[in-house]
C-alpha cells in the first residue's frame, strides 16, 4: 500500500518534470518562429521586382484554412476532456477528427504553395517570397510532425487505453497542437491580413 502510494507520488513529480520541460521546449520553438517572423518583417518589402504580398494572397482562402486549424484545436481540447473522463472511443474519434482537419489544413497550404510556384512565384523569386515560404512551411512542417504524433497516439490509445502515461502524452500533444494554433494566428495576422492591406 505504502509502496504504491510512494510510486504514485514519484510518478506525479516526474510528470511535473516532463510537463515543465515540454513548456520550456515550446518556448524555445516559439523563439525559432520569432526569428522567422523578424526575418519576414524585414524582408516583406524586398520583392526584387517581383510581386508584393497584396498581389498574391487570397484572404478568403486562407480564412477557411485558418478555421480548419482552429476547429481542429477546439476538437483537440475536447479530446483531452474525453481522455480525462477515460472515454477511450471518444478520444480516438477526437484524435481522428483533429487529424482530418489538420490534413485539410495541410492540403490547403500545399495547394496555395503549388499555385504560387506554378505562377513562377517560388521561394527563389525574391527575399520576400523566401521569408514567406520559410515561415509558413516551418509551421506546416510542425503540423506534419503533429500529425505523425497523432497517428502514434491513435495507435497507442487503441492498444493500451487511457493509462496515466497515455493521458500525459495526450495532454502534451494538445499543448503542442494549441501552440501551433497560436503561431498560426500570428501568421494569419502578420503575413496575410497585414499583407493584403
Amino acid at each position: 500500500m505504502n509502496k504504491t502510494k510512494e510510486a504514485l507520488a514519484r510518478r506525479i513529480v516526474s510528470d511535473d518534470k516532463v510537463t515543465f520541460g515540454f513548456w520550456i521546449y515550446l518556448m524555445t520553438d516559439c523563439l525559432i518562429f520569432a526569428s522567422l517572423f523578424a526575418v519576414y518583417v524585414v524582408q516583406r518589402s524586398a520583392t526584387a521586382g517581383g510581386p508584393s504580398s497584396n498581389e498574391l494572397f487570397d484572404l478568403p482562402f486562407v480564412l477557411v484554412e485558418t478555421l480548419l486549424l482552429l476547429t481542429s484545436s477546439f476538437i483537440c481540447g475536447l479530446m483531452v476532456l474525453a481522455a480525462q473522463a477515460h472515454r477511450k472511443n471518444l478520444v480516438i474519434i477526437g484524435l481522428i477528427a483533429t487529424g482530418l482537419l489538420g490534413a485539410g489544413f495541410l492540403a490547403m497550404e500545399l495547394t496555395e504553395f503549388s499555385h504560387l510556384i506554378s505562377e513562377g512565384y517560388g521561394w527563389q523569386r525574391s527575399g520576400f517570397l523566401t521569408a514567406f515560404f520559410t515561415l509558413v512551411a516551418t509551421h506546416g512542417l510542425h503540423i506534419s510532425v503533429g500529425m505523425l504524433w497523432l497517428f502514434v497516439m491513435i495507435y497507442r490509445v487503441s492498444r493500451v487505453g487511457i493509462t496515466p502515461a497515455t493521458l500525459r502524452k495526450l495532454t502534451l500533444f494538445s499543448l503542442f497542437w494549441h501552440f501551433l494554433d497560436v503561431i498560426w494566428i500570428f501568421i494569419f495576422t502578420i503575413v496575410y491580413m497585414i499583407g493584403v492591406l
Binding site: T28, D29, L31, I32, S35, Q43, W123, Q124, S126, T130
Partner: peptide, 27 residues
C-alpha cells in the same frame, strides 16, 4: 533557437536557392 533558425536559413540559401542572405534578389 535563434542559432538553429539562422543556420537553417543559411543552409536553405545554399541548398534550395532561397534569398535570405544573398547579395541579390532581395537578400
Amino acid at each position: 533557437p535563434i542559432l538553429t533558425a539562422t543556420l537553417s536559413m543559411l543552409s536553405l540559401d545554399r541548398l534550395i536557392g532561397t534569398h535570405f542572405f544573398t547579395s541579390d534578389m532581395g537578400g
